[in-house]
Structure formats: C-alpha cells, structure tokens
Amino acid sequence: MVPLSLLPPGKEAVIIEIRGGMGWRRRLMELGLMEGMKIKVIQRLFPGPVVIAVGNARVVLGFGMAQRIMVREV
C-alpha cells in the first residue's frame, strides 16, 4: 500500500483507504473516488498535483490530497 502521490504516470491502482475528514471523503465520493475503485495516473507534477483517470473521467488532486489516498498497484 502506497500513497497515490508516489505513483508515476501510467500506473494503475486500486484505492484501499481514504484518510481524512468526512467532508473531504464526501467530496471525493462525489467525484467517484472511493475504496475499491480502480484508477490510473495520467499526469503528475511531483511534488504537486496529479491527474488520475476514474472510469472515463479525469480528476485533479492536489498533492496533499494525493498523499492521503492509499492505493495498491495492480
């Protein structure tokens, strides 16, 4: 299990855990990010924001947020 912020572009992973308050978990859920979802890193500006693919959507996450999403590479 690693923070999403460490995955290089092109890697796919499954979300294992989202750390943080309820408000933010809900924001992420609204954008389709929840435990068990498969995602793919499209682009990142390490240490900075990342763009990930969730289904057909592309979502930008700030660095802080990406550090709180724990994923397992597939």
Binding site: W24, L31, A57, V60, L61, G62, G64
Partner: peptide
Amino acid sequence: GESAPFVMELPP
C-alpha cells in the same frame, strides 16, 4: 491553517 485540499474534475 492549511488551505483545503484541491480536487476538481478535468473536462475532456
């Protein structure tokens, strides 16, 4: 205090 996390959808 920290600014709130940055999340948004990127349209095609």
